[in-house]
Design a protein around this nucleic acid. Structure first.
Length: 284
DNA sequence: GACCAGGTGAATA
DNA sequence: TATTCACATGGT
């Protein structure tokens, strides 16, 4: 196994902030940074002296995963010059955040798990799914052996019933997961949805049992990289009312209003705001 | 013990 | 169409 290293300027790439802003649930602290798991792959990522470093055996995959071809300096600039003070402030704090390009099927399962749930618990549940149903893998990073579990293949998920999913803590979401695993036929039909426009794609996602507007928006943004999506959860609702002077109460309408205003920048601004509001609360 | 967490489906008016 | 409620679980 050949390990490759990506070295990237850290001005607009902070590994910790990118991982901690709630778009991904499979990562853990390791040495100078983090081990990050996606699909059946792993990388070791950290920041050190003005650089971000990513070590993996699939350079191409993680180059795309961390969205390294995108110019985040330009995006942050647009946030700094935007009419909304909260977006401006939050982009200063979160300028190192990047929107990941994650595996679509994994993102779909993960965000169904996420509904009405908190991040530590979401992480735990997904970890159990991988531990019980995922393939055991091994990698060697800087001479050290790393053992981990891949995200389960759909046919492995499809073998399990609602009782199993309940037993790993999914609660009432167990039946959503059971049905999705049995319905999507290996997951290929999910990948193919990328051909659709954002609005058609959203409607297809909404037709899945257990997927509502918020989960659909997260899958659009984190799985399909549709940055003209603005997921509105409890945190965004809070920041919208408390820091942006928003007056709407219906989450769907809030999302529509913000996408209408910020277009292709919506997803980035949403991540800055989510991270900002959560860190404000943590420091109070 | 109430309230909350990256909400959704179903019933009701 | 818009509101309201139940839903599992674990943390504060």
């Amino acid at each position: 196994m050949i390990m490759d290293k990506i070295i990237f300027d850290s001005k607009y790439f902070n590994v910790k902030d990118t991982l901690d802003c709630g778009q991904i649930f499979r990562y853990r602290p390791y040495k100078k940074g983090y081990l990050v798991f996606s699909s059946d792959k792993v990388c070791y990522a950290y920041n050190e002296s003005e650089k971000a470093v990513i070590i993996s055996d699939d350079k191409k995959y993680f180059y795309n995963f961390f969205d390294l071809s995108e110019d985040y300096g330009e995006i942050v600039n647009k946030a700094l010059n935007c009419d909304c003070e909260a977006i401006c402030q939050s982009s200063k704090l979160g300028k190192g955040i990047r929107i990941l390009n994650q595996n679509r099927v994994e993102t779909l399962f993960s965000f169904i798990v996420s509904q009405n749930n908190n991040i530590p618990r979401i992480k735990g549940i997904i970890e159990k799914m991988c531990f019980f149903l995922g393939e055991k893998k091994c990698a060697e990073i800087e001479g050290e052996k790393i053992e981990y579990f891949a995200f389960p293949k759909i046919n492995e998920l499809a073998k399990k019933d609602v009782g199993f999913f309940s037993s790993i803590g999914l609660g009432y979401r167990a039946s959503y997961i059971e049905r999705l695993a049995k319905d999507i036929d290996g997951g290929k039909n999910i990948e193919e949805l990328d051909l659709l426009s954002t609005s058609d794609l959203k409607n297809r996602l909404l037709s899945i049992y257990g997927v509502g507007p918020k989960v659909a928006d997260c899958v659009l943004l984190f799985g399909f990289h549709r940055t003209d999506s603005f997921p509105v959860d409890t945190w965004i609702e809070k920041v919208y009312h408390e820091n942006m002077g928003g007056t709407l109460t219906d989450r769907n309408k809030i999302a529509k209003q913000l996408v209408c205003k910020y277009g292709e920048l919506s997803g980035y601004f949403q991540q800055y705001l989510f991270y900002y509001k959560r860190s404000l609360e943590a420091n109070e």
